[in-house]
Design a protein around this nucleic acid. Sequence first.
DNA 1: GTCTATAAATAGATAGAC
DNA 2: GTCTATCTATTTATAGAC
Lengths: 199, 199
Amino acid sequence: MTGTARRYHHGDLRAALISTGYDLLAEHGLAAFSVARVARELEISTASPYRHFPDRDHLLAAVATRAAEELAAEVERAVDAAGPDPVDRFAATGGAYVRFAAVRGAGFNVIFAAELRGLHDEALSAAGRGLMDRLLDLARAAVGGDTERSLWLLEQQVALAHGYVALLADGFFVRPHQTVDHLARQATEAGRTLARGLA
Amino acid sequence: MTGTARRYHHGDLRAALISTGYDLLAEHGLAAFSVARVARELEISTASPYRHFPDRDHLLAAVATRAAEELAAEVERAVDAAGPDPVDRFAATGGAYVRFAAVRGAGFNVIFAAELRGLHDEALSAAGRGLMDRLLDLARAAVGGDTERSLWLLEQQVALAHGYVALLADGFFVRPHQTVDHLARQATEAGRTLARGLA
DNA sequence: GTCTATAAATAGATAGAC
DNA sequence: GTCTATCTATTTATAGAC
């Protein structure tokens, strides 16, 4: 991908900017994300993106929105594959987070970044809210319906999943046998422990 | 602190650079961290820091080392205060992480940042290793001595603690009643659940 | 060991031509 | 809607005076 000419904005530069920004984030991290670099990657002028986004942060928010939507899709896939047991279904979301982050890197962090909160971007807020609502549903089913316990469990699980993602991103705890699948299983297992602890 | 003139490098600019960088990180985040800005804050020239650190990353590593040492001290305080039960002592480390991160902000993330791993800074590596060794000891005591289970628990607990710190940093899940103390208690409680799950 | 001065990148953003 | 050209700000890092 990197270094390859793309120039594929056949009438839809906006979409190309998001797509390229998304890949850039995954491959080189947030520090490397800039309007200038996205433009360079697409072989367009640095001025062109500003016809589609008012500033850097709004482009980043659009990228984050796409990341949130794809994370939600990954969660859905994992839940479907987990079978009928509510605790299994809930626990599977942790594994989905880990797998998503392994592929998309910093694209994950940007979804909930405080840096973008102040923008009050409606699409991004909605995507994040949708994901949390879904997780809360799954938590509620896992603990048997109690709302207070559901919220506790949701909070613990989100923390746990974010934590595994952080360890993965920092290259922490990477002993030879710790592949992504291993980490995803560990996250799933820990989520199961938490769910049982509150059920 | 911010905006106040300091110029307190009475013969020890190196220490002043670390101290100011540490505060800068806590107050304005990693994105705001730069050699130039630390120098500006101290009212010295931008060239002076390079007499004490070869480049930006080595200064940042020194700051991270200090953060790691202070986190370790916070953990020790929490463990001491937790009483004699091994599960309580282990669980208390999660609360210590949260309280430390609440005060030091991005100073926390930098301790384990992949960005600095490549430097192979001996002091930073040693500080991180010391902390993990201590947590592993506590985990081992909590599960009753088994090494394999201790490693699992350590991994789960570090993930959990990092996750709560991430939620705190992103201003996530901050409903009115969720003070730092509340979050620290939640992290402690979740750690207890994990320890019991593996004990 | 600290300073002034400066070089070389890079980024964000805008004006105005086409 | 895209380009060229440009401005401003910022950073990392070095050279050389004191």
